[in-house]
Protein backbone atom coordinates (compact mmCIF):
# COMPACT_ATOMS: atom_id res chain seq x y z
CA UNK A 1 0.00 0.00 0.00
CA UNK A 2 2.87 2.32 0.81
CA UNK A 3 4.37 1.62 -2.59
CA UNK A 4 1.04 2.23 -4.31
CA UNK A 5 0.73 5.57 -2.55
CA UNK A 6 4.31 6.31 -3.55
CA UNK A 7 3.55 5.49 -7.19
CA UNK A 8 0.48 7.70 -7.25
CA UNK A 9 2.39 10.55 -5.60
CA UNK A 10 5.16 10.09 -8.16
CA UNK A 11 2.66 10.16 -11.03
CA UNK A 12 1.00 13.30 -9.67
CA UNK A 13 4.35 15.04 -9.17
CA UNK A 14 5.49 14.11 -12.65
CA UNK A 15 2.34 15.14 -14.44
CA UNK A 16 1.74 18.21 -12.32
CA UNK A 17 5.23 19.58 -12.86
CA UNK A 18 5.39 19.41 -16.60
CA UNK A 19 2.04 20.47 -17.96
CA UNK A 20 -0.47 18.66 -20.09
CA UNK A 21 1.35 17.27 -23.10
CA UNK A 22 3.90 14.58 -22.33
CA UNK A 23 3.93 12.05 -25.12
CA UNK A 24 7.30 11.01 -26.43
CA UNK A 25 7.18 10.41 -30.11
CA UNK A 26 8.82 11.88 -33.17
CA UNK A 27 6.43 13.68 -35.49
CA UNK A 28 6.73 15.37 -38.84
CA UNK A 29 4.64 18.29 -39.98
CA UNK A 30 4.70 19.65 -43.53
CA UNK A 31 2.60 21.94 -45.63
CA UNK A 32 2.71 23.32 -49.15
CA UNK A 33 2.65 27.03 -49.98
CA UNK A 34 2.61 27.24 -53.73
CA UNK A 35 5.16 24.78 -55.04
CA UNK A 36 7.32 25.06 -51.92
CA UNK A 37 6.88 22.34 -49.34
CA UNK A 38 8.13 23.29 -45.90
CA UNK A 39 7.84 21.69 -42.52
CA UNK A 40 9.65 20.56 -39.44
CA UNK A 41 10.34 17.49 -37.32
CA UNK A 42 9.55 17.60 -33.63
CA UNK A 43 9.16 15.49 -30.55
CA UNK A 44 5.70 15.63 -29.20
CA UNK A 45 6.26 17.94 -27.41
CA UNK A 46 9.91 17.71 -26.31
CA UNK A 47 11.29 20.21 -28.82
CA UNK A 48 12.50 20.13 -32.41
CA UNK A 49 14.56 17.30 -33.85
CA UNK A 50 17.78 18.72 -35.28
CA UNK A 51 19.90 17.00 -37.89
CA UNK A 52 17.33 14.37 -38.75
CA UNK A 53 17.48 12.76 -42.18
CA UNK A 54 14.64 13.87 -44.46
CA UNK A 55 13.64 12.10 -47.65
CA UNK A 56 10.68 12.95 -49.85
CA UNK A 57 9.49 10.46 -52.43
CA UNK A 58 6.79 10.81 -55.05
CA UNK A 59 4.03 8.25 -55.44
CA UNK A 60 6.02 6.44 -58.15
CA UNK A 61 9.02 6.02 -55.85
CA UNK A 62 11.25 8.76 -57.27
CA UNK A 63 13.16 10.64 -54.59
CA UNK A 64 12.60 14.37 -55.06
CA UNK A 65 14.42 15.65 -52.00
CA UNK A 66 16.82 14.41 -49.37
CA UNK A 67 18.62 16.39 -46.71
CA UNK A 68 18.84 17.09 -43.02
CA UNK A 69 16.86 19.33 -40.72
CA UNK A 70 18.38 22.62 -39.53
CA UNK A 71 18.81 23.88 -35.95
CA UNK A 72 15.06 24.54 -35.71
CA UNK A 73 14.23 21.09 -37.02
CA UNK A 74 12.94 22.65 -40.25
CA UNK A 75 13.32 21.77 -43.92
CA UNK A 76 11.96 23.09 -47.22
CA UNK A 77 12.09 22.06 -50.84
CA UNK A 78 10.36 22.88 -54.09
CA UNK A 79 8.42 20.34 -56.12
CA UNK A 80 8.20 20.27 -59.90
CA UNK A 81 5.01 18.34 -60.47
CA UNK A 82 1.65 17.79 -58.88
CA UNK A 83 1.62 14.42 -57.14
CA UNK A 84 1.44 12.80 -53.73
CA UNK A 85 4.69 13.10 -51.81
CA UNK A 86 5.60 10.98 -48.84
CA UNK A 87 8.08 12.71 -46.56
CA UNK A 88 9.97 10.52 -44.10
CA UNK A 89 12.20 11.61 -41.24
CA UNK A 90 14.78 9.39 -39.57
CA UNK A 91 16.43 10.49 -36.32
CA UNK A 92 19.15 7.84 -36.65
CA UNK A 93 18.42 6.41 -33.20
CA UNK A 94 15.30 4.44 -34.05
CA UNK A 95 12.95 7.41 -34.19
CA UNK A 96 11.01 7.64 -37.42
CA UNK A 97 8.12 9.75 -38.63
CA UNK A 98 6.38 10.39 -41.91
CA UNK A 99 3.86 12.72 -43.48
CA UNK A 100 2.08 12.77 -46.84
CA UNK A 101 1.55 15.91 -48.91
CA UNK A 102 -1.32 15.15 -51.25
CA UNK A 103 -1.52 16.40 -54.81
CA UNK A 104 -4.61 18.42 -53.88
CA UNK A 105 -2.49 20.71 -51.69
CA UNK A 106 -0.19 21.68 -54.56
CA UNK A 107 -1.11 24.41 -57.06
CA UNK A 108 -2.96 23.34 -60.19
CA UNK A 109 -0.49 25.21 -62.39
CA UNK A 110 2.10 22.48 -61.85
CA UNK A 111 2.12 19.69 -64.44
CA UNK A 112 0.52 16.56 -63.06
CA UNK A 113 2.83 14.07 -64.71
CA UNK A 114 4.84 14.22 -67.94
CA UNK A 115 4.48 10.50 -68.64
CA UNK A 116 1.34 9.47 -66.77
CA UNK A 117 1.50 6.17 -64.94
CA UNK A 118 -1.64 4.52 -63.54
CA UNK A 119 -0.68 5.34 -59.93
CA UNK A 120 -0.44 9.10 -60.45
CA UNK A 121 -3.56 9.39 -62.60
CA UNK A 122 -5.42 7.62 -59.83
CA UNK A 123 -4.02 9.98 -57.21
CA UNK A 124 -5.84 13.23 -58.15
CA UNK A 125 -9.33 12.03 -59.04
CA UNK A 126 -11.04 15.36 -58.26
CA UNK A 127 -9.47 17.43 -61.04
CA UNK A 128 -9.52 16.21 -64.65
CA UNK A 129 -5.83 16.48 -65.65
CA UNK A 130 -6.20 17.27 -69.36
CA UNK A 131 -8.38 20.38 -68.86
CA UNK A 132 -6.14 21.61 -66.06
CA UNK A 133 -3.15 21.24 -68.31
CA UNK A 134 -4.82 22.95 -71.27
CA UNK A 135 -6.49 25.83 -69.45
CA UNK A 136 -3.67 28.02 -68.06
CA UNK A 137 -4.88 31.47 -69.07
CA UNK A 138 -2.12 33.89 -67.91
CA UNK A 139 -3.97 36.33 -65.58
CA UNK A 140 -6.32 33.95 -63.75
CA UNK A 141 -3.88 31.34 -62.35
CA UNK A 142 -1.83 34.16 -60.81
CA UNK A 143 -4.78 35.35 -58.77
CA UNK A 144 -5.78 31.78 -57.91
CA UNK A 145 -2.24 30.99 -56.84
CA UNK A 146 -2.14 34.10 -54.66
CA UNK A 147 -5.40 33.18 -52.98
CA UNK A 148 -4.24 29.61 -52.49
CA UNK A 149 -0.97 30.73 -50.98
CA UNK A 150 -2.50 33.16 -48.53
CA UNK A 151 -5.14 30.66 -47.46
CA UNK A 152 -2.43 28.04 -46.96
CA UNK A 153 -0.44 30.51 -44.88
CA UNK A 154 -3.44 31.35 -42.74
CA UNK A 155 -4.57 27.81 -42.03
CA UNK A 156 -1.03 26.62 -41.30
CA UNK A 157 -1.11 27.44 -37.55
CA UNK A 158 -4.44 25.69 -37.31
CA UNK A 159 -3.08 22.58 -38.97
CA UNK A 160 0.02 22.63 -36.77
CA UNK A 161 -2.19 22.84 -33.71
CA UNK A 162 -4.37 19.97 -34.91
CA UNK A 163 -1.32 17.87 -35.67
CA UNK A 164 0.24 18.36 -32.24
CA UNK A 165 -3.10 18.08 -30.46
CA UNK A 166 -3.50 14.57 -31.85
CA UNK A 167 -0.52 13.47 -29.80
CA UNK A 168 -1.09 15.31 -26.57
CA UNK A 169 -1.22 12.99 -23.66
CA UNK A 170 -4.29 13.27 -21.54
CA UNK A 171 -4.86 12.63 -17.89
CA UNK A 172 -7.60 10.10 -18.49
CA UNK A 173 -5.27 8.01 -20.65
CA UNK A 174 -2.68 7.86 -17.87
CA UNK A 175 -5.28 7.05 -15.25
CA UNK A 176 -6.83 4.48 -17.60
CA UNK A 177 -3.46 2.81 -18.04
CA UNK A 178 -2.88 2.65 -14.30
CA UNK A 179 -6.39 1.24 -13.93
CA UNK A 180 -5.60 -1.47 -16.48
CA UNK A 181 -2.45 -2.43 -14.58
CA UNK A 182 -4.30 -2.63 -11.27
CA UNK A 183 -7.10 -4.65 -12.90
CA UNK A 184 -4.70 -7.09 -14.56
CA UNK A 185 -2.82 -7.44 -11.28
CA UNK A 186 -6.06 -8.25 -9.49
CA UNK A 187 -7.06 -10.75 -12.16
CA UNK A 188 -3.67 -12.48 -12.00
CA UNK A 189 -3.89 -12.55 -8.21
CA UNK A 190 -7.34 -14.11 -8.36
CA UNK A 191 -6.31 -16.82 -10.84
CA UNK A 192 -3.11 -17.53 -8.94
CA UNK A 193 -4.89 -17.99 -5.64
CA UNK A 194 -7.51 -20.23 -7.32
CA UNK A 195 -4.74 -22.38 -8.83
CA UNK A 196 -3.12 -22.63 -5.40
CA UNK A 197 -6.40 -23.52 -3.74
CA UNK A 198 -7.35 -26.39 -6.09
CA UNK A 199 -4.63 -28.92 -5.14
CA UNK A 200 -5.40 -28.32 -1.49
CA UNK A 201 -9.06 -29.16 -2.04
CA UNK A 202 -8.15 -32.31 -3.99
CA UNK A 203 -5.82 -33.34 -1.20
CA UNK A 204 -8.60 -32.81 1.31
CA UNK A 205 -10.99 -35.00 -0.74
CA UNK A 206 -8.48 -37.84 -1.05
CA UNK A 207 -7.77 -37.60 2.66
CA UNK A 208 -11.46 -38.00 3.31
CA UNK A 209 -11.57 -41.11 1.10
CA UNK A 210 -8.52 -42.49 2.89
CA UNK A 211 -10.20 -41.85 6.20
CA UNK A 212 -13.26 -43.88 5.11
Amino acid sequence: MKMLAFTLAFAVAVLGSSGDALAHKMKLFATAEGAVVSGYVYFSPGGRAQDAQIAATAADGATVFSGRTDAQGGFRFEVQRRADYRIAADGGDGHEAHFTITAAELPQSLPAEPAPTPTTTAAPPSSPPPTAAVAPAPPLPDLAALVEQSVARQIRPLREQLDSYQETLRWHDVLGGLGYIIGLGGLAYGFASRANGRPRRRLAASEKEAAR
Partner: peptide
Protein backbone atom coordinates in the same frame (compact mmCIF):
# COMPACT_ATOMS: atom_id res chain seq x y z
CA UNK B 1 1.62 -4.46 -10.66
CA UNK B 2 2.88 -1.45 -8.70
CA UNK B 3 6.29 -1.54 -10.39
CA UNK B 4 4.63 -2.01 -13.76
CA UNK B 5 2.68 1.18 -13.00
CA UNK B 6 5.91 3.00 -12.03
CA UNK B 7 7.50 1.92 -15.31
CA UNK B 8 4.38 2.95 -17.24
CA UNK B 9 4.48 6.46 -15.75
CA UNK B 10 8.27 6.88 -15.88
CA UNK B 11 8.33 7.02 -19.68
CA UNK B 12 6.20 10.16 -19.55
CA UNK B 13 9.01 12.11 -17.86
CA UNK B 14 11.04 13.38 -20.75
CA UNK B 15 13.43 16.19 -21.46
CA UNK B 16 15.32 17.46 -24.51
Amino acid sequence: AVLSAVFFVASLVHFP
